[in-house]
Amino acid sequence: MARIIGGITTSHIPAIGNAITRGQMEDPYWKPFFDAYPPVQDWLEEAKPDAAIVIYNDHGLNFFLDKMPTFAIGAAPQYLNDDEGWGLQPLPPFQGDPELSWHIINSLVEDEFDICSCQEMLVDHGFTVPMSLMFPDQAKRSAIRTIPVAVNLIQHPLPTPARCYKLGQAIGRAVASYEKDTKVVVFGTGGLSHQLDGQRAGFINKDFDLMCMEKIVSDPEALARYSIHDLVRLAGAQGAELILWLVMRGAMSEKVKKLHSNYHIPISNTGAGLLLLENAA
């Protein structure tokens, strides 16, 4: 049987990808951020997941406003990264797992989540930056099978935090009912507080972020009670990406154990959060 062996949250800021490409990990600006990742990389090395479900948002690479699915799931044998227009170097293809993807798609629709399935899907920095952080080694990065789950965070109405948490729970049930012996890890990417647009650009809310870092572990339902408007107000326009963390958390069991965490301000315009969770026995 398949099982979820861990949940990881990480920011997915494009500047991280540039810093990796340029080898700036030891620079004073970047070091405190990158130094938090080896414990998570070591855990992955040890736990050897077969597949990663990556919860992210597309920032205008694969999806345009002509067709904007609220929840889209990849069902492709591989996923290509591509030019996003502003200079991030595209990464080599990522491996898919169509069988597990279709199992999840079938299970979700049966569970009344009417998602959009994608047999071709470009993945952007929201997906690739976390993959680079988790698997710095290209061979390992291209070995793990991936299932991209894209959540609309461009055009309101965005799905509510409560809905995203429930989607995660449905993904958890889908994995648990997959018959092939598969170890699955779930990445909730993005966040924490940041706002890129408007006179409020540069808004970061450390207190709110630290509260989210705690509640996502101990009481995710408290976070699921916020509205999207609350999240925009409290975490900034793009801080609404917390809903991606809630999808991950929903896929985990009710009680989880926190193995590692880090919070760092600022990376680019963002409060960057990292968490490694295991299901509690």
Partner: peptide
Amino acid sequence: KPAPIPGTVIFDG
């Protein structure tokens, strides 16, 4: 629509 958030345009329909 809920109360506006200063300095923020909600990218809606």
